[in-house]
Structures are given as structure tokens and as C-alpha cells.
């Protein structure tokens, strides 16, 4: 990412608000993703064999009806006209109709989005909390047996594909533990609610939802945590070797203060960048995890729509994912400003 530029070239009145100018610049920088993904999707769609009209075609439809259908869908117009129309309808939030569900794509996505956001943000938060703790713990005792062991565990989970981890969790909690005993260990392996959840009280409902969240969240968290831990360990080791840490220790500061206030605060800055960079990995993970655990989010909607040849839903889901990445990166930029005073006060970055 191009974070190297100085904040001084933020234009005109933005100069007094360096953080704002930083965010505006980063937002402009994400424009290629926002325009690029729909463009790519559009090009792929027009390159693909057959077109949208083929979904409506049945054997025995007269050729003039086919022409009529293509005309109604606007497929007879030249490529650039269709491209501009696709972009402008996207900008208006008009995503078309789902062929398989018969409702507007926007409504489908609107019901699925909160579920993906819940699962994704919970996993992201958990994996960062766990990864940071593990990374700091390792950096404080580098090259010991415990450190190597934890590095090995991190690398293992970093290498385990989420679909297999999820499958094994289904086996463990759904089959082995699920059949043996009724109790806290029997975790639901599918869906978002239990059967008959409508009749539960508000607290039981929340608890039921929480139980359904455990396994999908665990799978996603495990996949991300290893990378975070590896990163934090390296960043902390680098920072802990700096002279100002030695100086802080020489001044007699407590070890906790040195580690958390002096070292971690500085290791935090690249970590926020990692947060933004792990969004693609997280969203790829949600696709698989939602599929395994039947979690009704965007990813599952997309995969089931591919099977149903419901192209509008797949395309809109793809574009929505791009928006999520951009929004997440923007959030990371804001956090960046909070963590790094150099950005807040508009001094050039190191």
C-alpha cells in the first residue's frame, strides 16, 4: 500500500485537518477497487459464453421471442452503453432481480449482510486479540522451546485450509461429542438458529445465536490468528531491540509499561495495516465457513446462487465484497490516525 507519501500535499482547506486529508486521499486511492471490480465483473460477464437471457430460454421458444427477450433486457445494445448503464444502476443501488428467489437482489443481500458482518467482525476481533497476546508472549521469550512450539502451532493453523478445519470441527462437535452427551459440549453445526427459536425468550434467543456462532467463528479465528501472531512476534522483536526501549528500561519503568506503552504502541502501527490487508483473507474464509456451517451470509448466498445459475446475485455479491474491503480499509485508516500521532498532526511519516 502506498502509505509513504507525506500529508503535506493534501489540498487547500484540508491542510488544517491532516487526518481528514489522509482519509480522503486513501478513499480516492480505493476508487480503482470500487470501479475496477464492477468493470472486471462486467467484462467477465460479457466474455462468458451465453448471456443473461439464456436463463429465461426454454426449448421451443420461437426465435422472435428470443429477440424480444434480449431487447427487453437491453442486450442488443453495444458494450459501452451497457457498461455505463450497469455502473449507473450500481451507483443507484439497483442490483436487479434474483432469478432463483424472485425478489430484488438488494433485499437478498440486505438480509445476508448483517450475518456476514457479525461473523466476520467477531472472528477478526478474536483472532487479533488472540494473535496479539500470543505474539507478545513469544517476543518476550524469543528462541525458547515455548516460542518455537507456538511458532509451529501458528504456522500449522496458517496452513490449514478453513474448509477442512470446519469439516473436522463438524466431526468433533457434531458427531463425536454431539451424539454422546446432551450438554454444553453439543454445539450446533448448522444454521443460525435452533428449530423453534421463535418461542424462546430474548435471553435464550441470544444464547441460542451465540451457540450457533461458536464453531464458524472458531474456524475463521483459527485461520487468521496464526498470521497475526507471527506478525506481532516479528514486529515486537524489532521494536524491543530499539534504543528507546533500553532507555525506558534504564529509567526504571516497569516491564509492563515498557512492553505495552513503549513497545506495543509502536508495533501496533504496522499491525493496523495488517488488519486492512487480512480483510480479503477473512472474506474468502467466510465464503467457505458459511458454506460448511450453513450460516446465511453473503458467501453462502453466492455459492448457492452459482449452483442455481443466479448470475445477478453472484455479481452483486462480488461487488458488495469489494465495498466491504474498501470500507474495512477506510476503518483501518481511521484507526491508523488514532494510533499514529504523526498522521493526526500532519507531520510526514517516517
Amino acid at each position: 500500500m502506498d502509505s509513504g507519501g507525506s500529508c503535506r500535499n493534501g489540498g487547500g482547506h484540508l491542510k488544517e485537518l491532516p487526518l481528514l486529508s489522509f482519509v480522503v486521499r486513501r478513499l480516492l486511492g480505493s476508487l480503482p477497487l470500487l470501479v475496477g471490480v464492477p468493470t472486471l465483473v462486467f467484462l467477465a460477464l460479457s466474455l462468458a459464453p451465453g448471456d443473461v437471457a439464456s436463463v429465461y430460454l426454454r426449448p421451443g421458444i420461437p426465435p422472435e421471442t428470443v429477440v424480444q427477450i434480449r431487447q427487453n433486457l437491453g442486450l442488443d445494445e453495444p458494450l459501452h452503453v451497457r457498461y455505463v448503464r450497469w455502473l449507473s444502476s450500481l451507483a443507484r443501488g439497483d442490483l436487479g432481480y434474483s432469478v432463483a428467489h424472485g425478489v430484488s437482489v438488494r433485499r437478498l443481500l440486505a438480509t445476508a449482510l448483517p450475518n456476514t458482518l457479525l461473523l466476520g467482525s467477531l472472528s477478526l476481533g478474536l483472532s487479533f486479540a488472540l494473535g496479539i497476546l500470543t505474539g507478545i508472549f513469544q517476543a518476550l521469550r524469543p528462541h525458547t522451546v515455548l516460542d518455537s512450539f507456538l511458532s509451529g502451532v501458528s504456522l500449522f493453523f496458517y496452513s490449514v485450509p478453513p474448509f477442512w478445519l470446519g469439516t473436522m470441527l463438524v466431526l468433533m462437535f457434531g458427531v463425536w461429542l454431539g451424539s454422546s452427551a446432551e450438554g454444553l459440549w453439543t454445539l450446533p453445526v448448522s444454521g443460525m438458529f435452533s428449530v423453534g427459536h421463535e418461542f424462546l425468550g430474548p435471553w435464550e434467543k441470544a444464547f441460542d445465536r451465540l451457540r450457533h456462532l461458536v464453531l464458524p467463528t472458531l474456524t475463521l479465528t483459527a485461520v487468521l490468528t496464526g498470521g497475526v501472531a507471527r506478525f506481532v512476534r516479528a514486529a515486537m522483536l524489532e521494536v524491543l531491540g530499539e534504543d528507546y526501549i533500553l532507555a525506558a528500561r534504564a529509567r526504571g519503568l516497569s516491564e509492563t509499561r515498557v512492553v505495552l506503552k513503549h513497545a506495543f504502541r509502536n508495533a501496533l502501527i504496522p499491525l493496523i495495516t495488517l488488519g486492512g490487508l487480512s480483510l480479503p483473507l477473512l472474506l474468502s474464509g467466510t465464503v467457505v465457513v458459511e458454506f460448511i456451517f450453513a450460516w446465511p451470509g453473503i458467501g453462502r448466498l453466492m455459492v448457492t446462487s452459482v449452483a442455481a445459475r443466479d448470475i445477478p446475485v453472484v455479481l452483486a455479491g462480488t461487488v458488495l465484497m469489494a465495498f466491504l474491503v474498501v470500507a474495512g480499509n477506510l476503518l483501518a485508516d481511521l484507526l491508523y490516525g488514532l494510533a499514529d500521532p504523526r498522521i493526526r498532526h500532519g507531520r510526514p511519516q517516517a
Binding site: M1, S30, G36, V37, P280, L282, G317
Partner: peptide
Amino acid sequence: DTLLAFPKLVLLVSLAALF
């Protein structure tokens, strides 16, 4: 950069849907 910032599996799923 655009491709790097995009979830790979989502890209692969949508391409598989189209082709």
C-alpha cells in the same frame, strides 16, 4: 493492487459462475 485487495475465493467463485 485491485486484484490483491480483493478476496481471491470470491473472485474465483464469480468467475466459475460465469464460465
